[in-house]
Simulated assay, not measured.
Amino acid sequence: MSSCIAPSRLAALTKLRCSIFETSYNPTGVRTGAKYLRQRLRGPSMVAYYPKQLSLAHIVKKYPELGMKNTPELQRLDDVDDTKARGKGAPKKAATKADSRRAQKKR
């Protein structure tokens, strides 16, 4: 029965069906990844599954009235100050483009 219908009419019917049901028209069967793009996103459900991680830093920041101190952070800041005093700290950022080391090398 389908042999009496012209292939061009079947292609037109498929194109019309795709426009009605908002699917992608792909007459050549090229891989497009549409199957994966239609899937529901996994990210929001994965975020909802895992509970929020509490850390000392978050608690100290949220409740300063408790008077707690984040000793690892204070130790880190002291170490950074010590390395800067010895001249081993991170270099200063360039204020302008002309101050950068790359610009000096190009000259």
Results as ranks from 00 to 15, higher is better:
residue 36 Y to C: 06
residue 18 C to Q: 01
residue 1 M to Q: 12
residue 80 V to Y: 12
residue 97 K to F: 14
residue 4 C to W: 14
residue 2 S to L: 15
residue 98 A to M: 05
residue 84 K to Y: 05
residue 30 V to F: 04
residue 102 R to G: 12
residue 42 R to D: 05
residue 23 T to Y: 01
residue 46 M to P: 00
residue 95 A to P: 06
residue 34 A to T: 06
residue 18 C to S: 06
residue 72 P to H: 01
residue 46 M to R: 13
residue 84 K to F: 07
residue 27 P to Q: 00
residue 29 G to M: 00
residue 89 G to S: 03
residue 14 T to I: 10
residue 13 L to H: 09
residue 43 G to L: 15
residue 11 A to N: 08
residue 11 A to I: 07
residue 87 G to N: 04
residue 41 L to C: 11
residue 72 P to F: 01
residue 93 K to G: 07
residue 9 R to Q: 14
residue 66 L to H: 04
residue 52 K to A: 10
residue 44 P to I: 02
residue 56 L to H: 04
residue 82 D to T: 05
residue 107 R to E: 08
residue 6 A to E: 13
residue 14 T to P: 00
residue 104 Q to K: 12
residue 23 T to N: 05
residue 78 D to W: 06
residue 45 S to C: 07
residue 49 Y to S: 14
residue 75 Q to T: 15
residue 100 S to G: 04
residue 90 A to K: 11
residue 84 K to I: 11
residue 68 M to W: 15
residue 76 R to V: 09
residue 63 Y to M: 11
residue 51 P to W: 02
residue 97 K to W: 14
residue 73 E to M: 05
residue 12 A to M: 12
residue 59 I to R: 07
residue 104 Q to A: 10
residue 79 D to C: 11
residue 104 Q to E: 08
residue 45 S to H: 10
residue 58 H to W: 07
residue 50 Y to I: 14
